[in-house]
Simulated assay, not measured.
Amino acid sequence: MYQLNIDKAEFLRDVWQQQPKVFPRAFVDFVDPIAADELAGLACEEEVSSRIVVTKGNDWEVISGPFEDYDAYGESHWQLLVQAVNHWYPDAQPLVEAFRFLPDWRFDDLMVSFATPQGGVGPHIDNYDVFIIQGEGRRRWTVGPKGQYARRGNNPESPLIEDFEPIIDVVLEAGDVLYIPPGFPHQGETLSLALSYSMGFRAPSQQELVSELADFLIDANQGQQRFISSSEAGSQGLVSCSEQTGIMALLAELANTPSQYIPVLGKLLSQNRFELDICENESAMDLTELTDALDDGANLVRIGGLKVLRMEADPEARLFIAGESLPITEASPDELSLVANATCLDADAVAPLLAKPCWQNFWLTMLEKGYWYLGE
């Protein structure tokens, strides 16, 4: 169990999405949840998103995984980064739990890096919030103020920016945490062999919202209303201001209609950017088999990274899971909340749910899909 030793209420009020901050010894006696060789093994898998960044003077080379071996990279000036480790490595879940004082819909993934001395990714700006937790070893981090920064080498395609004047310059050791909101430039430099953990939190962009809304309207055959006006512009080639605002008000109307936007947001916010480690089942389980397994001490365990969300004020009894809307018609709000919040449910918690046919169907379907599995 990982206990995050910060004042969470104060953090949310004064720091979250406002300013970067260092939290020394935020985890006391921190123990790495994964070893370097285990991380390297994950990066060998085709399904796992990984990359190596090689430092070359003032430039960086990025090589995408999977990787068969690492001998060619030497003993310094490179870093291995593996995305969504929490999807593939269950022992990482307790570290994720320490940050669940923030809502699940914001959580993106746990990225883990193994870095050799003088390895790093260069100065860059992220469009999401990140907590950097230092494990084994030591890394120096610098963070600059928000501002307009030129791309490295005037290359608009470069993910890197030119150097910045730091407002934070700190060496992190095991258990230290650095929080960086969106828009603040930062850079890490490895001082000794190091494992670092980046807990990323992301909100949807306007592009993602509009794209999901369009998909929903097309799939549901909705959004057929057209603009109607009582007067027209006096000039043949002119679109008047009132017409412009009237047309755009069609979108505003959708945004103010819960029956329209709740399913859009639920599906969008429950999606994952990275592949899930689906727990494949050889055959479907029936209710008797499920009940017997629970009676024998099994728990229903959610796979790593799966987002299970409910929408406040939703007129329908449903959950949004992995980009799908799943009606559970007879479920109570407390039951929906229990399933959305808990990553592991024991027999005592599940028994009242299995008294209802809607939950019986739900659990058998989730086990068949491989979103939950029977574990200890």
Rank of each mutant, 00 (worst) to 15 (best):
A35V: 12
W363T: 04
D71F: 08
H186I: 03
L290R: 03
F216N: 01
E97H: 08
L193V: 06
L338I: 14
G375S: 08
W60Q: 04
S270A: 14
L250H: 05
G183N: 10
V210T: 11
Y89G: 00
P185Y: 01
V62S: 08
V130A: 02
G57V: 13
I132D: 00
L345Q: 04
P24A: 07
G147A: 09
N256K: 10
T329A: 14
P117Y: 09
E10L: 12
L290G: 10
L193G: 03
A98T: 10
E10G: 09
G41Y: 03
A214R: 15
T365D: 12
T343L: 02
K307N: 14
S50R: 06
N154Y: 03
I247D: 03
E330Q: 13
F131V: 04
D295R: 12
A84N: 07
S283G: 09
G153R: 04
N272V: 08
E289A: 15
Q79S: 15
L309A: 07
D286E: 11
A331R: 01
Q225C: 11
S198G: 13
L254H: 12
Q79D: 06
W78I: 07
M199Y: 05
A115M: 01
T343V: 06
T288C: 11
A36N: 06
I321L: 03
A340L: 07
C241G: 11
A331Y: 06
G147M: 11
L309V: 10
R226K: 13
L251R: 05
E324T: 10
S158M: 08
P94H: 13
N272E: 13
L238H: 12
K21A: 12
W372F: 15
S235F: 15
V54W: 01
W372Q: 03
R138C: 00
